[in-house]
Nucleic acid binder design. Structure first.
Lengths: 142, 142
DNA sequence: CTAGGTGCAAAAGGTTTGCGGTTAA
DNA sequence: TTAACCGCAAACCTTTTGCACCTAG
């Protein structure tokens, strides 16, 4: 749903610099947490995962870092139900499948032609920067 | 995205009864508010619109009524950004276009074949009850 | 008579903000 | 040196809950 770039830690500094922002240990640690376990954690979950490594970090800083990563297009913020926002470091075009029983979220790869079909439903004049597709239901192993 | 039924006030009593629920003046008034102006209002906006007609209603009751309507499949609850949930009485298959500048939301009709294509990306085993498609960008007149 | 519904006020999330102190260009 | 950044705590906003009263079946 976005211009693609490999999601590597190395990109962080570059992307931040591109926006005139600094690379800080907090931002690195938060970004790594998202790269490590791609289960769409909430800010609070990121906070929990990151604390062992950086006990001094605050929840507010986690929120700030996530916000910054979203601004830099390194992370997608996902809100498909009322409740805490979730964060996703997968930049490849994909849809989300939200399991209503377990609450888990899975990435579903989205072929370019389907994405094109979907964009095709837009009447002319509408200029969509991003498209979000979310399924709600039951996943196989649940 | 759902089995279709015409969205008429008459359906309210029927659908409620079907779930063993009562039809109350509050529920009628809230449902009518959604049918009247389909601009995806928040609970608080519904509250404001409904008060002139029923000054005694409380915000908590508006929340309760909306929740009930969602349970009865008469209304869709929409959450595509952090912030208050929005409510939509359009039951025909449609996507949403969210204008990032104005915050307005528009319904985009969704042809069945596109919907089918989208559902097609799901690996076998995934059972999707609903699909939500949301565009973010800039709308023509904005 | 009784389950379901309302209204109120208080509480519970989740997120943002203000501010004093710190740090990298 | 100075703009960006951090951590803390308090504020904020949306939603939910507990409870007393009410009402339709």
């Amino acid at each position: 749903m976005r211009p693609e770039t490999p999601e590597t830690p190395a990109n962080l500094a570059e992307r931040l610099a591109h926006s005139g922002l600094r690379n800080t240990p907090q931002r690195e640690v938060v970004y790594h947490a998202l790269l490590d376990r791609r289960d769409h954690p909430t800010a609070d979950e990121v906070y929990t995962r990151v604390r062992p490594e950086m006990p001094s970090i605050s929840l507010a800083t986690v929120y700030n870092c996530l916000e910054t990563l979203v601004q830099c297009d390194l992370v997608r913020q996902v809100n498909f139900e009322r409740g805490p926002s979730r964060y996703c470091a997968n930049l490849h075009p994909h849809a989300h499948f939200h399991d209503e029983k377990t609450g888990a979220t899975y990435d579903i790869p989205l072929p370019p032609e389907v994405l094109a079909q979907v964009r095709g439903v837009l009447p002319s004049g509408y200029d969509a920067k991003t498209v979000e597709i979310t399924f709600h239901g039951q996943s196989p192993t649940a």
